[in-house]
């Protein structure tokens, strides 16, 4: 038998006050997650926590038996961004998730790293390059279907772990522009860090009143959480070793509990999906996983 799938708490994508972040990870230490990704990945202007703070959180989580990974920015623009990325890459304590090729270059051949979801690993040839440089795990791009994941994983070098985005609002796009600042008619350099007032981002609805997207600073997310809870058997069969759960301000511990139970077979796909549905105002989606439009409603319990 293969080992049970592990749960990974993805990096916090929103901007929360320092105390909220510390409280969140203090709680997370008790959740049934195996891996915790830490660090700021979205916007370099968000500096409630410094690298030292993330390392301290990492140490306390590691002491509770969690695997800790530090994530790099998904978009690097300035010299300061590069310096921060290098500081993360050289942290000396924890494995690093590389989210752009500059980070891959900084880590290549030096230590095992996680190939993050923004590296666009759509095929086995790309994964082979990254594995050759030291990637020990890859996080699939959100667009890759179950069949695509399975095909890449099947050809992956031995021992490479495969992580999919199993729960949460999908990070769909990143820009040099800040859409939260734009909403407030502020410029990016004088954004007043307004996104700290939106712990779940700013909801974008269509003109006919349907929840569609979420503005999270320079990042745009789906309004629907993607949920693979209905097809964890399929995920396992596809070679998935890690299920990524994306932090939200409320209910993330319950999400972890549901996924743990579902992955262990203690909850049916239908039961798991029903419990998750209570945690989010917008119904879940899983279209990408099924090879269609990402927004397509999740099919609870599909085989």
């Amino acid at each position: 038998m293969t080992a049970p799938m592990k749960l990974a708490l993805g990096p916090l994508l929103y901007f929360w006050p320092r105390e909220s972040v510390l409280d969140f990870y203090a709680e997370a230490a008790a959740w049934p997650v195996d891996t915790v990704y830490l660090g700021e990945t979205v916007c370099p202007r968000r500096r409630e926590l410094r690298l030292e703070d993330w390392l301290a959180i990492g140490e306390s989580l590691a002491a509770r038996g969690k695997e800790v990974v530090l994530s790099t920015y998904e978009l690097i623009e300035s010299d300061a961004d590069l310096r921060t990325m290098h500081a993360v890459a050289d942290n000396g304590a924890f494995r690093v998730e590389a989210n752009d090729m500059a980070a891959v270059r900084a880590l290549a051949g030096r230590m095992p790293f996680v190939a993050g979801p923004f590296l666009n690993v759509y095929n086995a040839a790309t994964l082979a390059v990254l594995a050759d440089l030291g990637a020990s795990r890859w996080v699939t791009p959100v667009e890759l279907s179950r069949e695509g994941v399975a095909a890449v994983a099947a050809e992956a070098p031995a021992g490479i772990e495969t992580e999919v985005f199993a729960w949460g609002r999908l990070p769909l796009a990143v820009s040099a522009r800040c859409f939260t600042a734009r909403y407030y008619d502020l410029t990016k350099d004088h954004c007043e860090l307004r996104c700290i007032g939106h712990p779940e981002g700013l909801a974008v609805d269509t003109q006919d009143g349907k929840p569609f997207l979420v503005l999270n600073g320079v990042q745009t997310q789906s309004a629907s959480p993607q949920s693979l809870a209905g097809d964890l058997g399929g995920a396992r069969a596809a070679g998935v070793t890690h299920l990524r759960l994306s932090p939200q301000p409320h209910g993330t511990g319950e999400v972890a509990a549901v996924f743990r139970a579902a992955a262990d077979g203690a909850l049916s796909p239908g039961e798991a999906s029903a419990r998750l549905a209570k945690l989010h105002a917008v119904p879940a989606c899983d279209g990408y996983w099924r090879g269609t439009a990402g927004i397509a409603p999740a099919q609870a319990g599909h085989a």
Partner: peptide
């Protein structure tokens, strides 16, 4: 959006 980093259309 940053080219190569936008999945809005496929969503």
């Amino acid at each position: 959006m940053v080219e190569g980093r936008c999945a809005l259309s496929s969503y």
